[in-house]
Simulated assay, not measured.
Amino acid sequence: MFEPKTVHEMVTPVLMANAIVGMGIWSSNRGKFLNIAYSLICLVMYCVVMKLSIEYLGNHYLPKVTSLGNYTFYGIFYANICLTVCLIPCGWLRKKYMKAAIMRIAMCEKSLEQMGLEKNYRKLYRNQLIALIFVAVIFIVFIVVNYDGMFVEGTPLHVKIIITFAFNYPVGLLYVSDVSFLHWVSYAKIRFTQLNNLLRLMLTTTPDSPQHKRVLKMKDEWDKSFVASTQEDSKSKNNTDTMRAVKQVHLELIKSTRCTNDAFGIQILFSMTVSFVFITSLLYYAYKIFWQDIVSREKSQKEIIPVISWILFYSSKVLIINHMCAMASVEAANTGDIICELYEPTTSKEFRAEIRDFTLQLIQNPLTFTACGFFNLDHTFIHGKRTQYAE
Rank of each mutant, 00 (worst) to 15 (best):
M107R: 15
N365T: 02
K189C: 06
A101K: 06
M103A: 08
T240L: 01
M16E: 11
I130D: 06
C47L: 15
Q128A: 12
R104W: 10
I143H: 08
N18I: 00
S180V: 08
E221G: 03
M107N: 15
L34S: 05
L62R: 06
D220C: 08
H323P: 02
D293S: 10
C340H: 15
G265E: 11
Q364S: 14
V65H: 13
A333E: 14
V227S: 06
I279R: 11
A328M: 13
Q388L: 14
P89K: 00
Q211K: 15
I138D: 07
Q128Y: 01
T370I: 04
F73R: 12
F313G: 01
L157P: 06
A166Q: 12
W310F: 09
L132W: 04
T72L: 10
K160Q: 15
K299G: 04
L377V: 03
K64M: 03
T257S: 15
T12Q: 11
S271T: 13
I382H: 01
W92S: 05
Y74E: 06
P345E: 10
M324T: 07
G69F: 01
L117M: 10
M45Q: 14
T12N: 09
L312N: 00
I54P: 06
L377I: 01
M50K: 00
Y121Q: 11
I382G: 01
K119S: 12
L253H: 03
S271V: 07
K51T: 06
F73T: 04
Y97I: 00
T280A: 13
G22N: 08
I339G: 01
T335C: 14
I130M: 09
C340I: 03
C372A: 04
S229L: 11
T206N: 09
L173R: 08
L201E: 15
N29R: 13
A188W: 05
M16D: 08
T206R: 08
G149R: 03
N146V: 03
Y169L: 07
R200E: 12
C82V: 15
T346I: 07
M115K: 14
L195Q: 14
K51L: 04
Q388C: 10
Q114V: 05
I339R: 02
A136I: 02
P156K: 13
F369R: 07
I140D: 07
K96G: 04
C86F: 07
L269D: 11
A37T: 11
N70A: 04
L174G: 05
C372D: 14
I162F: 10
I143Q: 10
Y78V: 01
P170G: 12
K235Q: 12
C90M: 14
V179W: 15
I140V: 12
I54A: 09
R104H: 09
T257H: 06
Y287R: 07
Y285R: 14
L251H: 07
L87E: 09
L198T: 03
Y187M: 11
Q292V: 02
Q211T: 09
T205N: 08
I138F: 00
F278P: 08
V227W: 14
W310S: 07
F151M: 05
L129V: 13
W310M: 09
L117A: 08
A19F: 04
